[in-house]
């Protein structure tokens, strides 16, 4: 089977996050707001490409990506995933505690689909994650902008 033949599971979400506390919070939050989702966690950015290229498992349609990670950080993951056109349809939502314009611009330039501020408060964090997933899951394909749209 060619790599491009991998099945995309619309309910499969890949979460790349080095913090165990944040992984647990994401799991708790999304299992409540979107019980239909199946979450798969990676603790660092080193194996993201290997996972996405694994033909034995379905590919996620959405990825939450922490920016600050040891080893390959979020920017590195973004760049390498976006460099492979096979994954052009993968929605990448960056999670970060920074709200500076420079960081946001850098993520957008690297190909992030959403930039999400990671609040400390869990209830707010759940609402933020829910908002992002709601948006991307409800967006009809015909309404999606092409990757090179302004």
């Amino acid at each position: 089977m060619d790599r491009t033949d991998s099945v995309i599971d619309d309910n499969l979400v890949l979460v790349v996050e080095d913090s165990e506390v944040d992984r647990e919070a994401i799991d708790r939050a999304l299992s409540r707001s979107h019980p239909e989702l199946v979450l798969e966690f990676l603790p660092d950015g080193n194996t993201v490409l290997d996972r996405l290229r694994d033909r034995s498992r379905p590919r996620p349609s959405l990825m939450f990506l922490d920016l600050s990670m040891p080893g390959v950080d979020g920017y590195g993951v973004l760049s390498s995933v976006r460099a492979d056109p096979t994954f052009a349809d993968l929605t990448i939502i960056v999670l970060t505690s920074s709200t500076t314009s420079a960081d946001i611009d850098r993520c957008y330039a690297a190909g992030a689909d959403s930039y999400i501020y990671k609040p400390v408060n869990f209830a707010l964090f759940r609402t933020v994650l829910q908002g992002a997933v709601d948006y991307w899951h409800s967006l009809p394909p015909s309404n999606a902008l092409p990757p090179n749209a302004p």
Binding site: T99, S101, I104, Y115, V120, L124, T127, V128, D134, Y135
Partner: peptide, 30 residues
Amino acid sequence: ALLAEASLRMDASLDIADTLRAVLRMVVPA
């Protein structure tokens, strides 16, 4: 929590444009 965090940021900074940009990042997509 959003009101509290936004207020904290707005109280702590006098660069109001930058602070309000940060507040928008809390509002969207929450």
